[in-house]
Amino acid sequence: MIKISKLIHDYIQRDEEGNPSGTIRAIDDVSLDVSPGQFIAILGHNGSGKSTLAKHLNALLFPTEGAVWVNGMDSRDQSLLWDIRQTAGMVFQNPDNQIIGQVVEEDVGFGPENMGVPTEKIWQRVEESLKTVGMYEYRKKSPNRLSGGQKQRVSIAGVIAMHPKCIIMDEPTAMLDPSGRADVIKAARKLNLEENITIILITHYMEEAIQADRVFVMDNGKIAMQGSPREVFSQVERMQELHLDVPQVTLLGHLLRKKGLEIPEGILTREELSDVLKKLKKGNRQ
């Protein structure tokens, strides 16, 4: 679905007169592969390069060196620009700043309009998309009257209406409250499971990453860690070095292990922990 090969991205810094004064390397030699239908999480603190990476997947930025292929299309080929943007949709962080329409349904129709989809087909797509994210009953409402989580679901619908194969979500939950966050993640998972859309979720919240097929951790423009959620979160100390959270249950397991209990690293759920502890207790009694 997505293939990144030795990607380098430099931002050009400018002095007060606007002349180039140097460069900042935001992405430093990153290679990764995403297969169709995967749910990928990219973690990393602010400034780690994860947002820059996201913008490459949608051809909003172009490689300084290396290359990005989206569904086989090279982002360096300008003639494929619109095909890439249609194949890989993008949901951004701030819900207010990505809704263009003043009515929910008009906003969802914006993408298909730009693609030149015929009128009746637009209506079909808008209806389908809004139903998928559970916002159909709000189709006549003004986006300003919706909560943050609802706005983000409208934004997701706006992307689905373009019939993408892949959706990149750049911290879609950072500005939401817990219930809004849960709704957005639920919608993303549903798209992945039911519509088989590849999801690339960029986030700070590790609980959103636990359910991913694969987790990439970015630091300083490079991929610092990658693997299944269990493989990544079991490296508690490395994660803490990178200033990232691990689930508290994983952390608790790690602490107990350090205190001498025989607990495996990488416990991800409360049930796992309770099972392990039960077994230990039995062992103690015998």
Partner: peptide, 14 residues
């Protein structure tokens, strides 16, 4: 990101 490129080739929902 949602393929807006001016008025040319655009269709209308309404």
């Amino acid at each position: 990101a949602r393929c807006y490129r001016g008025g040319a080739g655009r269709t209308k929902m309404k």
